[in-house]
């Protein structure tokens, strides 16, 4: 049986761990060609690579800062040379930083906005040249449930993710006529990232608030993402999918 992403050329930013890694693995299971970027965690990147290889996928792996324009150009350029183009870009790289406004210093703000907002802009812009030329492609921006409604979230994080929502809407509108779709996936608290770090009472609060009574798994969210980036999905663009357990 051929996979749902057979031969699809996918790039996931921040793919060395957490949801990014699960996205890479889910895509690979469906037959995709997978590339991912990471910033610092070489051991995690190596681990992701090994897991992808175990699925029969030989990933391309790039180290760099998503907020570095040259890095974005280099990654997309290398993939274009290697694969002839790019079908799927997932802007997943993010920063987890929990801090109240009283302690939110300018470098924190810049790092957050650079990673979560400037990064997606740079990578989208780099990838879209080829996608528009091919009149085919899709971008999936990974947001967060807290940008969909008022919940307690660090201000710079909420602002960056809400900004990403605006970027998604505007890009969807702007590149739709070229057959390129841009959507947003905003998961709730998962078994990776923040969900593993929060104090137990916070996780309990989340469970109590969520209609499904649980936190999510990166694996189930990644499974949902497969459809969103696949060729089966032809009519959704500018859409927001928020698997958050019914918060």
């Amino acid at each position: 049986m051929t996979g749902r992403l057979e031969g699809t050329r996918c790039l996931v930013t921040g793919g060395s761990r957490g949801l990014g890694r699960e996205l890479c693995l889910a895509f690979a299971r469906e037959g995709a060609r997978v590339a991912f970027t990471f910033r610092r965690r070489e051991a995690d990147a190596e681990d992701t690579t090994l897991r992808l290889r175990a699925l029969g996928c030989e990933p391309q792996c790039f180290q760099g800062d998503v907020a570095d324009g040259a890095h974005a150009q280099a990654v997309v350029g290398a993939l274009t040379r290697a694969w002839g183009g790019l079908d799927v870009l997932v802007n997943n790289a993010g920063v987890q930083h929990v801090v109240p406004l009283a302690l939110l210093e300018e470098p924190d703000w810049d790092l957050m906005l650079n990673t979560c907002l400037k990064g997606p802009y740079l990578f989208s812009r780099a990838a879209l040249r080829g996608m528009i030329r091919a009149r085919k492609g899709t971008i999936l921006n990974v947001g967060v449930f807290s940008s969909e409604r008022i919940v307690e979230a660090p201000a710079h994080y909420a602002a960056a993710k809400a900004g990403l929502r605006g970027l998604t809407d505007a890009l969807a509108r702007e590149v739709g006529r070229h057959g390129v779709r841009v959507n947003m996936l905003s998961p709730g608290l998962l078994d990776v990232g923040l969900g593993r770090m929060l104090m137990p009472h916070r996780v309990e609060e989340y469970r109590a608030q969520a209609a499904l009574g649980r936190t999510g798994t990166a694996e189930e969210v990644a499974r949902m993402a497969v459809f969103l980036v696949s060729d089966e999905n032809t009519f959704m663009t500018g859409a927001r999918v928020t698997p958050d357990g019914g918060l």
Partner: peptide, 27 residues
């Protein structure tokens, strides 16, 4: 405030994901 900032930094390090147990210990 600086001490509290350092504490938050230990609870939510920016460069890595720590486990809940590590966070509890840091706290």
């Amino acid at each position: 405030l600086k001490i509290l900032r350092q504490l938050l930094g230990a609870l939510f390090p920016r460069d890595r994901v720590i486990t809940r147990e590590e966070a509890l210990r840091a706290a």
